[in-house]
Every structure is written in C-alpha cells, then in structure tokens.
C-alpha cells in the first residue's frame, strides 16, 4: 500500500518523501481565481495556507518529487464548477498538464466529462467528493476513464471490502488520518471559509459551531431521555483533532487497497512528517513481522498514543468497529 501525503510548501516536499511518502497531492489557488470567486475555491480549500499560490511553485514541487520518482497529484476537486468558470479551468488544466502533473483529482461529473473530451493522457482520480458507496458507482466512474477512486469516510471496513471484491482493474484509496468529517463530503453543501479567522462564526466549519439545540418527540418518548452530550459532539471534538484509521491497515493490506490518504493540506510541516512516519512505521511492521490482527492493533494503539499523546476514542476513529 502506498502512503499519500499532502504538501503545500515547496520546502516540505523532500521532507515528507524522506519520511516515507510514496505519493503526494496538493492544490494550487492562484490570485486571479481567488479574487473572482473568494469562498468558491477551485479545490475545496479557499484559504491560501493550504495551497500553492502559483503554477511555478507546483512546477518546482513536481521537479523535486519526480527526481525522487514520486508522483504528484493535483486537486481539482471542487464539488461543482459553472459554465462561466470553464475558460479559466480549461486553461488551468492545460498549464498543469504541460508541467507533467501525474494525476488530477476531480469530484465534479461535468469536469470529468470535459477532461474525457479533451482526451488527456493524465490519470484521473475521483475525489471523495464523488460520493462512491458501491461497486456500481465505481464502475460508473471507471467507464468514464477514472483509474482510481477515493472512497468516502463513511464506509465500514466490511463495506470497503465488499466494493474491493466486486470491482476489477481500478485502484482504491481510503482515508487513514485526520479530519474525520461528520458529514459526507460529496453531499455536504455547507460552505467553508466564508471569512478569515477574525470572524469565527463565518470562518469555522458550520458543523463545528455552537448551536442552541432543542428537540421534539412523540408523547411516548419524553425529551428527558435524550442524551444531549451526543447532540453537541461535533463542537466538543474538533474535526481537525487527530482522527486515525490505522487499525484497519491490517484489513486494507489483505484486501488490496492501493493507497492510504493522509488528510492535511494546510497542516504544519512537522505534523505532515509525523503522520507519514506513523503510517510508514506501521506498514513496515506489518510487512516485516507478519503479526496477527490483535498483535498489530496493540502496536498501532501504543504508537498512536505515543506520537499523538491521546488515547484511541470512538469519535476520532475512522473505522470504530475495531473499537467496539
């Protein structure tokens, strides 16, 4: 299995490769796009911190990565683009193809159809924004030229295995670390990043705001039975805490998952490195020691506790069926 790490600064490319990343992904948000569309990003990250700001930066990043024989994928994964955005978009695609980006990550069916019409040779990866929950949906995108699918966060290990068992000749990628979004990425229509950090109510993800919550119920179920703590859980447990799915590496290895996605465009470089080292250590252990599932999970939990200084918790577990 390959480790896919985010990068957003040229100087961190070699560092995450040295740490053990096999593939990289990134975004580019240029000033001409940003000034026109502000909160409507080109790649789901409206802020500058999570993106390269010029194609030249991306070009340099690609040179470094290719020198180390590491592919680099570009996010064009906004949930939708409108007809008016296409002249810019097509020009942008042409420019990034000219500098040999290795794959485009897309979520919008209209963009996918456009890329197909352009007959590009570059690999197409369907973002988790493509909301693919079954093997028929995988084949739908495969028919349109996709060579890899990023599965949603909202699938169990068993459901992932069922998809893997029912599709052929396509790579599957799963989430392994960070940002366990409470809602399904491809179906969430809350808009992120409507303001900078100075205006918290517009800046924070809507799922993490503090809400006054009330409820209604039918007469047989009094309201005092409601567990209110649960209803406030997403504001209490930050989405960008340290969610982890590493226990499932054992099953993912057995079922033939291609790539492990570490979320974190915008994270500081030391965090990116720590994340890659964590997963690389576990994959090396799995390969070298051939542990049982129980042995492996003990090692995973000990290493997670040591690196991230926190216990394993169900709300922060990508595949919580391993905990309960």
């Amino acid at each position: 299995m390959k480790i896919l790490s985010p990068v957003d600064k040229v100087e961190e490319v070699e560092k995450v490769i040295d740490a053990g990343a096999d593939e990289l992904y990134c975004g580019v948000l240029t000033s001409d796009w940003h000034s026109k569309y502000i909160a409507g990003s080109i790649n789901r990250r409206p802020g500058g911190r999570a993106n390269f700001t010029t194609i030249d930066d991306l070009k340099e990043c690609i040179s470094i990565a290719h020198y180390r024989s590491i592919p680099i994928f570009l996010t064009l994964n906004e949930h939708y683009y409108t007809e008016k955005q296409y002249p810019f978009l097509i020009d942008f695609v042409q420019k990034v193809l000219d500098i040999n980006v290795d794959a485009l990550i897309v979520a919008d069916l209209a963009l996918l159809l456009t890329l197909r019409k352009m007959r590009i040779d570059t690999k197409i990866i369907i973002s988790t924004g493509g909301h693919i929950f079954n093997s028929e949906a995988v084949q739908f995108y495969q028919d349109l030229g996709a060579s890899r699918i990023i599965l949603p966060r909202h699938l169990t290990i068993e459901e992932i295995k069922n998809i893997r068992d029912n599709v052929e000749e396509i790579e599957l990628e799963v989430f392994i670390l960070n940002s366990r979004c409470p809602n399904i990425d491809g179906f969430c229509t809350f808009q992120h990043g409507l303001a900078d950090e100075s205006f918290e109510l517009l800046h924070k993800n809507a799922c993490m705001l503090h809400y006054d919550i009330s409820a209604t119920t039918d007469i047989n179920y009094p309201l005092d039975q409601i567990s209110w703590e649960r209803q406030y859980i997403w504001e209490m447990i930050h989405v960008d805490d340290y969610p982890c799915g590493a226990c499932a590496l054992y099953e993912f290895n057995e079922m033939g998952i291609t790539s492990l996605k570490i979320v974190g465009r915008g994270n500081p470089t030391p965090r990116k490195i720590a994340d890659v080292v964590f997963i690389r250590t576990l994959l090396d252990f799995l390969e070298a020691e051939k542990p049982t599932k129980d042995q492996f999970r003990k090692v995973v939990r000990k290493l997670y506790n040591n690196i991230y200084k926190r216990p394993c918790r169900v709300p922060m577990c990508y595949y919580p069926e391993v905990l309960v």
Binding site: L201, L209, Y211, D212, I213, A215, T216, D218, Y221, I226
Partner: peptide
Amino acid sequence: TYTFYLRNEI
C-alpha cells in the same frame, strides 16, 4: 421519533 432544531446567530 426525534427531531432536533439547531439555532445559531449566524
């Protein structure tokens, strides 16, 4: 059975 209502000033 249950319906929840979420209010925030924004």
